[in-house]
Every structure is written in C-alpha cells, then in structure tokens.
Measured scan of single mutants.
Amino acid sequence: QTVHVKGVQYHFPNPEEAVKFALKVAKDLGGRVEFHGDEIHVE
C-alpha cells in the first residue's frame, strides 16, 4: 500500500497502517485523503 503526501511516497505492508497514517497526516496538514485503487493520496 502506497501513501502519497506532497510528492513523497510512503510504503506500508499493511493497508490498515497506511490508512491510519494517511488520516493522521491529512488531519495534521488540514488536507483530505483520496483513495485511488491501491494508492492513497493526501491532498
């Protein structure tokens, strides 16, 4: 599972961890989380 944050990719073997990370980052940055297939983008 890959999380993209402002052009940087973070790889997580566990999808659940990836989602938790993405939600935390989005909250910290005041952004939103978008799901694109296997990828999660924080915009």
Rank of each mutant, 00 (worst) to 15 (best):
Q1E: 05
Q1A: 15
Q1S: 14
Q1D: 05
Q1M: 15
Q1W: 15
Q1Y: 15
Q1P: 10
Q1H: 14
Q1G: 09
T2R: 06
T2N: 05
T2K: 06
T2E: 04
T2M: 07
V3W: 00
V3E: 00
V3A: 01
V3H: 00
V3D: 00
V3C: 03
V3G: 00
V3S: 00
V3Q: 00
H4R: 10
H4F: 15
H4L: 13
H4S: 09
H4D: 04
V5G: 01
V5M: 06
V5C: 04
V5K: 01
V5A: 04
V5S: 03
V5Q: 01
V5L: 09
K6L: 14
K6Q: 13
K6T: 07
K6N: 15
K6W: 13
K6P: 02
K6Y: 14
G7H: 06
G7P: 03
G7F: 04
G7L: 04
G7R: 04
G7W: 04
G7A: 05
G7K: 04
G7C: 04
G7E: 05
G7M: 04
G7T: 04
V8I: 12
V8G: 05
V8F: 10
V8T: 09
V8E: 09
V8Q: 11
V8D: 06
V8A: 09
V8Y: 09
V8P: 01
V8R: 10
Q9E: 11
Q9L: 14
Q9K: 14
Q9N: 07
Q9V: 15
Q9W: 12
Q9H: 09
Q9C: 06
Q9I: 15
Y10C: 03
Y10K: 03
Y10A: 02
H11C: 07
H11V: 10
H11Y: 14
H11F: 14
H11G: 04
H11L: 09
H11Q: 08
F12Y: 03
F12W: 03
F12M: 03
F12V: 01
P13F: 10
P13Q: 13
P13R: 12
P13M: 13
P13E: 14
P13H: 12
P13I: 12
N14Y: 06
N14R: 06
N14A: 05
N14G: 07
P15V: 14
P15R: 15
P15N: 12
P15A: 14
P15I: 15
P15C: 09
P15D: 07
P15H: 15
P15M: 15
P15K: 15
E16N: 08
E16P: 05
E16C: 06
E16I: 11
E16G: 08
E17W: 06
E17A: 12
E17Y: 06
E17K: 05
E17N: 06
A18I: 00
A18T: 02
A18L: 01
A18D: 00
A18C: 03
A18E: 00
V19M: 15
V19S: 05
V19G: 04
V19C: 08
V19T: 08
V19F: 14
V19Y: 15
K20H: 08
K20A: 13
K20L: 11
K20M: 10
K20V: 08
F21G: 02
F21A: 03
F21M: 03
F21Y: 08
A22Y: 02
A22W: 02
A22L: 03
A22P: 01
A22R: 00
A22M: 02
A22Q: 00
A22H: 00
A22G: 02
L23K: 10
L23S: 08
L23D: 09
L23A: 08
L23M: 13
L23W: 12
L23Q: 12
L23C: 11
K24N: 10
K24F: 06
K24C: 07
K24A: 14
K24W: 09
V25E: 05
V25C: 07
V25W: 10
A26P: 00
A26E: 02
A26F: 03
A26N: 02
A26H: 02
K27Q: 13
K27R: 11
K27P: 01
K27F: 12
K27M: 13
K27Y: 12
D28A: 13
D28V: 12
D28K: 12
D28M: 13
D28Q: 13
D28G: 07
D28E: 15
L29G: 05
L29D: 04
L29H: 07
L29W: 10
G30T: 04
G30K: 08
G30I: 04
G30L: 07
G30N: 12
G30P: 06
G31A: 11
G31R: 03
G31Q: 04
G31H: 04
G31K: 03
G31D: 03
G31C: 06
R32T: 11
R32V: 11
R32S: 09
R32M: 08
R32C: 05
R32Y: 13
V33A: 04
V33L: 12
V33N: 01
V33S: 01
V33D: 00
V33P: 03
V33G: 01
E34H: 13
E34S: 13
E34D: 07
F35I: 11
F35W: 13
F35R: 06
F35K: 05
F35L: 08
H36N: 09
H36S: 08
H36C: 07
H36I: 14
G37R: 06
G37C: 06
G37D: 09
D38R: 10
D38V: 09
D38M: 11
D38A: 12
D38H: 12
D38G: 13
D38C: 11
D38W: 09
D38E: 11
D38Q: 12
E39P: 02
E39R: 08
E39N: 10
E39V: 11
E39K: 08
I40P: 02
I40Q: 01
I40F: 04
I40D: 01
H41C: 07
H41T: 08
H41D: 03
H41Q: 04
H41N: 04
H41V: 09
V42D: 01
V42M: 02
V42Q: 00
V42S: 00
V42W: 03
E43D: 09
E43G: 09
E43P: 04
E43F: 15
E43A: 13
E43K: 15
E43W: 14
E43L: 15
